[in-house]
Structures are given as structure tokens and as C-alpha cells.
Amino acid sequence: MNQIPPLPDLEPADYKSDVTPVWCPGCGHYAVLSAITKALAELHLARENVALISGIGCSSRIPAYTSVYGFHSIHGRALPVAQGLKLARPDLTVLCAGGDGDGFSIGGNHFLHACRRNINLTYIVMDNSVYGMTKGQASPTTEADWTESKLTPEGPGVPPFQPLDIALAAGASHVVRAFSGKVQLLTKYIVEAIEHPGFSFIQVISPCVTYRPEMRALKDRVHDGFAETSANRLEARRRLLDDDGYSLGVLFKSVEPSYTPCHRSGDGVSDLERQFAL
């Protein structure tokens, strides 16, 4: 009988493709790409068993820069694609990635329901509080008084979206905030998120040095405010009352039921076609 030889250990570089990123020099997303590839190497995952799904935006280019399966979907719709894939192929490790505009504005509704369904996947949002690809407009997480865009010269005027609060309220079972400038920690968080059996959400503060150069100063503002992980959702939400937006760590982690669809045996494409027939 032929024996399948064991897979060789892959290095982080093996999870990168030969496509050169077109992100701006200094962009935080490079570090996120590095952390994802390091995490996959730490977990010894075969490339053909991993899928990375994204939406639209600078950060959503990330599947092209990896050698795992990838799908660069449409704006705000990365999570529906990722959830569908995970339900159809539960054996795959599914990662979903994108930016704050894609995830919290265009795809905001999908974010709520992905948290609620708690399907076992990891959602990484590279949050730079700006729409970089379209040249620097205010995004859902932009401060109300940010005045550096021609479109909102007096600032967007609305308070920023609170990703962790919303994720907790909607039912996410693993909620993390990280910083692209701390690659070692980010790698650890991604490994833990992939290992978590449920919907893991990681908000990565990832500075855009081109449209928001002032974000470089964030490396001096982030701190380990969430060093202690809570398994109590209410307590985690209380901790957010004191959050300055720069606390890093695993805020909440709890193993909770996941949505599982009821598959009817025998249902195939031809059955679906029959149901849709007029």
C-alpha cells in the first residue's frame, strides 16, 4: 500500500504568493500579511486547506498576496462568501479579511449577522479609519472631527462605529483588538482566533501613513488594556465603557453554539432547479 509522505513544515514565506503588494510604503497591512503567514506556518496548515476571502479596498487585496485559496469578492460581501464556504466545506480553515469601510459600512449588516451566527471562521479587519483606495475619505471608524478630507472639511460629524461593542452585542464569541505594529502579538492572536471554534473577530489597528500620517503616533498610544480575557459577555461590555480605543488584547472568548444548517439529503442542483421552475 502506498503511504502518503508527511507534509514538510512550511515557512511563512511559503504562504506568500509571488505577487508584489501595491500597498503604499509604510502601510500597516504589510505587517498583517506577515502575521497571517506566520500564523499559518505556526499551525502547520496545508495551503490547500485554507481559504482567504476578502471584499473590496486596499486591505482586501490580501488574498492575491498569499498562496492559499483566495476569493476577492464584492464590496462588503466578504463575510457572506466566507460563511457560505465554511458551511459547504467545514473541513477548510476559512479566514476573511478586509477594511473598516468594507466591513462596517458597506458590509455592516453582514457583520452583525456573522457575529450572530457564530460560524467557525476568523474575520480580520484592518482598520485604518479611512477609505484609502479612493484617496482618503472618512470611514465608519473615523473620528467625528477629522477634517483632512475635501468631502468632509468640517469632519464627518458623527461618532465613530464601535466594532468591539457591536461584535459583542451581536454575539461574536471571540473578540480581539490588535495593532499592526506588534507583529508577534498579532500572530499569536490570529493563531488563537483560528483555533477558536466559532466566529473570531480581530480589529487590527493598521495605520494608513499616506492619508492619515498622524496615525504613526498610535504606536505610542496602544496599550495592553485587554491583557485579561473575559469569558463573560456582560463584563466584557462593561470593560469597553472605559476603553480609549487603543486597548489591545483578547477582550472576550467563550465557546458558544454555532449555526448549523439542516441539510436535506438528496438536495442537489437539479432539485433546486425544479423548485425554481415556473
Binding site: C24, P25, G26, G28, Y30, A31, S180, G181, K182, V183, Q184, L185, P207, V209, T210, P213, R216, K219
Partner: peptide
């Protein structure tokens, strides 16, 4: 520190 020590601070680069 937070990163491998010989890594030049990429976040201080720009186009």
C-alpha cells in the same frame, strides 16, 4: 521590543 530588533521601522517609510 514589539518586533524583531533589526527590522527597520517600516511604518516610518512613505512613498
Amino acid at each position: 521590543g514589539d518586533d524583531s530588533p533589526e527590522n527597520a521601522p517600516a511604518d516610518e517609510s512613505d512613498y
